[in-house]
């Protein structure tokens, strides 16, 4: 019987969303559309329309050593062209943001190739070849893994994920990279490291509370689904905790 990943335990909607995001066979719902040029502007790694700077010559022009592993693993488009390695970093609010650092890393590892994610408590960075990065960023921003108000694209100065929201529902950002306009649309006025953009980049309207509660991947006893309500998840986590604590004593399952 072929191995079928289960992705994670749990019976709650949060657990279901986690599995949904991680499962590469499940297509993520597209919620908004952002142009390629807009993505390049927010990332701030190169000017829109300019050529991709390279770190090494394209693989086709290089003499590749006779290596079985290189024959087995096909390079990504960015690696093939010799692009530089660049990054995108997200900060996700604890108030029902649709994704969370650990969740993002799991999801990206299942869905994308040639990436190097870094997971921290309040932010998650993913590094890869520039061409691939733009493709992956588009997917991360356009689908249900993003919310204009509760997810920030922040290369530096990320503080805000655990703070109370502002009156208008935006997550705190010291550099105010994204602002909620009078028309209800969130626009990025600075790139991810805080340099002002020549033109504002619209990323759509913030999702409403009902949608967020139904699509979040974080447990929150005050504004969302309480962790304690998901007994299956707790049972699983406690089992793992117990087994790894006893590991040195050669545990045997009953």
């Amino acid at each position: 019987m072929a191995y079928k990943p289960q992705y994670g335990p749990g019976t709650s909607v949060v657990a279901e969303n986690r599995r949904k995001q991680m499962n590469p066979n499940q297509k993520l719902e597209k919620v908004r559309s952002v142009t390629d040029e807009d993505i390049v502007l927010i990332l701030g790694h190169r000017a829109p329309g300019s050529a991709y700077p390279t770190a090494h010559p394209p693989l086709a022009e290089q003499q590749e050593p006779n290596c079985p592993m290189r024959k087995l693993v096909k390079p990504t488009e960015g690696a093939k062209a010799g692009d530089r390695v660049r990054y995108i970093q997200f900060a996700d609010s604890m108030f029902n943001a649709p994704s969370q650092p650990y969740q993002r890393t799991y999801t990206e590892m299942y869905r994308f190739r040639g990436i190097d994610p870094g997971t921290l408590s309040g932010r998650q960075i993913v590094e890869c070849r520039e061409r691939d990065l733009e493709k992956y960023s588009k997917e991360l921003i356009e689908t249900e893994m993003f919310d204009p108000a509760l997810v920030g694209i922040r290369g530096a100065t990320v503080h805000g994920h655990s703070l109370r929201l502002a009156e208008d529902g935006m997550m705190f950002d010291m550099l105010q990279r994204n602002v909620l306009g009078d028309d209800g649309i969130v626009k990025y006025v600075k790139n991810q490291i805080g340099e002002p953009l020549d033109r504002a980049v619209a990323v759509g309207k913030p999702m409403d509370q009902k949608w967020l509660k139904a699509h979040t991947t974080i447990y929150h006893s005050l504004v969302g689904t309480p962790y304690r309500d998901d007994t299956e998840y707790i049972e699983y986590v406690q089992r793992i905790h117990s087994l790894r604590t006893k590991y040195g004593f050669m545990p045997k399952e009953e």
Binding site: G155, T157, M174, L175, I193, E195
Partner: peptide, 8 residues
């Protein structure tokens, strides 16, 4: 008033 850290 100024960006405290990062590339900017």
């Amino acid at each position: 008033k100024k960006v405290p850290y990062g590339p900017a």
